[in-house]
Design a protein around this nucleic acid. Structure first.
Lengths: 131, 131
DNA sequence: GCCAACTGCGACCGTTCTAGTCCGAGTTTA
DNA sequence: TAAACTCGGACTAGAACGGTCGCAGTTGGC
């Protein structure tokens, strides 16, 4: 399936909301959740992950919150998806535990990898600012 | 997640195998499964679905089996994915039962739909023959 | 005419992944 | 010192997916 997870969806919406923030200001996760209608305890998680990856900055303590770490035009959809969903190839050959037993003879992996790169290039081409 | 389901994966592999068939010949689902190392009872399902969608032709009875209904160059990856996984937008706003409650105020749906179309265009650009 | 080898189709179950919640700890400001 | 926030892990419920089983219908050969 070519579909974004909810996490990525939430992340995109949240980033978009942070875009219209005055420099120096910050929005708390709870405020964002209420404002955007996102599930309460999911929002801090998504934002924390984005902060960890350097897409947003966080300030702790009272009156703390999140703000964009870079300009909205510098953050691509691809980056958000990669941070929140992890990057895995198009092909469902799981790595690790459930390894594909066809891996030796698989002749479609390379073409699919190429496709995957093209898809990511498309996502790379759209920034938060363009959403 | 931007990942193909196993069904789509199996479908692509199977179609690719059918490509090198003599005209008039047919391969049974079981043969394909053995030959490609696919799970035994999954393969008939995938092929039946493909036949239903007109991507492969089937002949019943003894010595029956499957063959491509069109030339491999005319079948795109996008089509296979659409048939086996169903087409759903990039955005995870499920339709029907679990409708997104943000649907009214959602301002990223349209941009995501555009992205989705671009992604499908990429998949459309690769045919079974190119795999 | 019967049997064997297929497709076709629906029902079913177990596993995996995802979404969402809860809770405790650390940080900052008033 | 208290309030408001981030941070991180652990846990639960539910949906989606992969995979299996069984039966009906069809065809070709003996």
């Amino acid at each position: 399936m070519i579909r974004l997870s909810r996490k990525s969806d939430y992340g995109l919406v949240a980033l978009k909301a942070l875009r219209s923030l005055q420099p120096g200001d910050a929005l708390s996760a709870r405020e964002l959740a209420v404002q955007l209608g996102l599930p309460g305890d999911m929002t801090p998680k998504v934002l924390a992950r984005l902060a960890q990856a350097g897409l947003v900055e966080s300030s702790m303590g009272k009156a703390g919150g999140y703000r964009l770490a870079r300009s909205a035009g510098d953050i691509s959809v691809a980056e958000v998806v990669r941070v929140l969903d992890g990057e895995s190839g198009l092909a469902p050959c799981r790595e690790g535990i459930l390894e594909c037993h066809r891996i030796e003879t698989c002749d479609i992996k390379h073409p699919l990898d190429n496709l995957h790169q093209e898809v990511m290039r498309v996502l790379q081409g759209m920034s938060i600012a363009q959403l």
